[in-house]
Design a protein around this nucleic acid. Structure first.
Length: 295
DNA sequence: GGGATCTGAGTCAAAACCAT
DNA sequence: ATGGTTTTGACTCAGATCCC
């Protein structure tokens, strides 16, 4: 039997409440039918490869490989490999929560119910920055780590111990800094502050792997600033012509994306006869979008 | 303070494609 | 026509941020 939502249209409050419920359903059914998200992602990948908005604490880029390197050292095999990795990542939550600043900690809110572990969030970035050397999905890495062990054994057998090199079967960058003593569960004072050698390693990786990106330019030449959009960066004049061009197109695209939503909302407000809403949309502070009101 | 919204990565099922 | 492989896209999840 199909679901039915109805109300008796004599009470303005009840009617308004029902309309709000309907609008909630509308939100859940939103679709990216025009594929605008993929274009947005392309801009992000060109300018800031390996990063995403969910990544807010750089030291996770080290916590994750430290966990996996430790498991490989202990030669943990599937299926325990994935389970153990998950347990080790969860073990990071408690020590991190002992810090005064708890912002950006995965598991701060969800606790033991955490489903998206830091490793899944940072997996792509670790590959893009060349910290992770094995090119596969996280699930494939978990499932086929045994194969890596076997290949290492095979290579070790072919060379004398002294000459043995694991370069063919490296999964993580060989110059990855060492974790703090007792990592991950018996460590005191675990926090997100990068040590000099850790910062230097990550900067080196970004430089080597994403040399042409705006990310590298900002890391090398600019201080942290507060701005809403990259095209509003105060040092924008110093960006390369290519970066300026991309940012220019990105700004156009951003305006179009917001403009489409704005125009839709304005038309809805007009259809609904909501003059206050119409006024708000027409007074949009973004001049590029606000001019659409005249259409 | 709490709910709503934003953002990107990963998952998985459906659709599209390809080889036989 | 069938079966296998690849691609596509809806959906979910997290923390951050905005707004009431």
């Amino acid at each position: 039997m199909p679901s039915l939502l109805t109300w008796i249209d004599h009470d303005p409050t009840a009617r308004d409440r029902a309309l709000r419920i309907l609008s909630l359903f509308q939100e859940k059914e939103s679709r990216d039918e025009l594929g605008l998200g993929a274009i947005r992602d392309s801009f992000a990948d060109m300018l800031f490869p390996g990063t995403s908005t969910i990544q807010t604490r750089l030291r996770y880029m080290l916590f994750v490989p430290w966990v996996y390197r430790e498991l490989e050292r202990k030669r943990i095999a599937p299926p325990h490999f994935a389970i153990k990795a998950s347990q080790m990542e969860m073990a990071l939550v408690e020590p991190l929560l002992e810090n005064e600043d708890q912002a950006g900690i995965f598991g701060r809110v969800a606790g033991k119910a955490l489903k998206r572990l830091p490793s899944s969030v940072y997996w792509n970035g670790l590959g893009a920055w060349g910290v992770r050397l094995v090119s596969c999905s996280q699930d494939e890495y978990h499932r086929y780590i045994d194969e890596v062990y076997r290949r290492r054994d095979s290579i070790r057998g072919r060379y004398e111990e002294d000459d043995f090199t694991e370069s063919e079967t490296l999964t993580w960058h060989p110059r990855l800094p060492d974790p703090p003593d007792g990592f991950p569960d018996k460590i005191e004072g675990l926090n997100f502050n990068l040590k000099p050698d850790e910062a230097s390693f990550l900067l080196d990786r970004i430089l080597k792997s994403q040399e042409e990106s705006l990310l590298v330019h900002l890391a090398l030449n600019c201080k942290p600033v507060e701005c809403d959009f990259p095209w509003q960066h105060p040092d924008g004049e110093g960006f390369s012509k290519e970066h300026k061009d991309i940012l220019n197109y990105a700004e156009f695209f951003s305006t179009i994306m917001h403009g489409a939503a704005f125009l839709y909302n304005l038309m809805l407000a007009e259809l609904a006869g909501r003059e206050k809403r119409q006024e708000e949309h027409r007074n949009n502070p973004n001049p590029a979008i606000g001019c659409l009101a005249g259409l």
